[in-house]
């Protein structure tokens, strides 16, 4: 069973994001990393190939520095990596990103594609399903658990009411929720071995994609600061308990 896991490189997942003068998110610089949201799908993918055989390929599109995200995924256990990087992809929107990722999958088809529910920096939550539609395969989003039974998938999908058990044929694409599983940490051996694993670096031309097909169709025309929160009072527990009760009375909810 061959699995492709999407691995996005995001700037400082824990830090404060920044906008550049062109209103685009600053994506270069040293402290980016593999999007934590992608590690859950990677963990599920690794477990599936451990149980059923096959390989995990990580696919990433991003600046040259995004190789760090690919390396991290390889250190966790992925078998090979693909990085698509091209100056024309700067500021790529969801559709352009999906076209690139879909082209990677056409080049090297997989039985199963795993992605995050939404990226930490872009959070459109739409790139994976767009890829599925471009490839003409079914998708299940917000997946918490996955099993392969008789060559098809049985997955648990998180819903507003609880969870659905969904039967889905292969090939398919799944987006995996944070908290679905506990992603492993790379071992020292994994980190050392990652450098030896095959990584392909591709430009748009290698995928047969025209620059016109990835031209962004959204343009930021204005950025304004929202009025800062007025900020209130900070008190200790002694005073605080009565003050909360007073506030509830003022709000006419007590």
């Amino acid at each position: 069973m061959d699995v492709v896991v999407f691995a996005k490189y995001v700037p400082t997942p824990e830090g404060t994001p920044e906008l550049g003068p062109d209103h685009l998110l600053v994506r270069d610089g040293g402290d980016g990393a593999l999007d934590p949201g992608d590690t859950y799908g990677l963990e599920l993918g690794l477990r599936l190939v451990e149980a059923h055989g096959g390989e995990v390929t990580v696919v990433s599109m991003g600046p040259a520095g995004a190789i760090a995200a690919v390396q991290r995924a390889l250190a966790m256990g992925a078998h090979r990596g693909v990085l698509v990087t091209d100056p024309a992809l700067r500021g790529a929107d969801a559709l352009a990103t999906a076209r690139v990722l879909a082209a990677c999958l056409r080049r090297r088809p997989a039985d199963l594609v795993l992605a995050g529910i939404e990226s930490t920096d872009g959070y459109t939550g739409t790139v994976p399903v767009t890829v599925a539609e471009l490839l003409g395969i079914p998708s299940v989003t917000a997946v918490r658990a996955v099993e392969v039974v008789d060559g098809a998938l049985r997955v648990e999908r998180q819903t507003e009411e609880g969870a659905d058990e969904v039967a889905c044929p292969l090939p398919a694409l799944l987006t995996v929720t944070a908290g679905a599983t506990e992603p492993r940490f790379p071992s020292l051996k994994g980190i050392m071995g990652a450098k030896q694993k095959p990584v392909e670096t591709l430009a748009l031309a290698d995928l047969g994609i025209d620059v016109e097909d990835v031209r962004p169709t959204q343009r930021v025309v204005a950025v304004a600061d929202a009025p800062p929160p007025a900020g209130g009072e900070i008190v200790d527990a002694e005073v605080g308990i009565a003050r909360i009760a007073d506030l509830l009375v003022e709000a006419k909810v007590l």
Partner: peptide, 20 residues
């Protein structure tokens, strides 16, 4: 969640821009 699935597939079919 469901409408993100619909919108994502729509942008692939229509080639239109999608804002989330």
């Amino acid at each position: 969640y469901d409408m993100r699935d619909v919108a994502g597939r729509l942008q692939a079919r229509l080639g239109s821009t999608l804002m989330s």
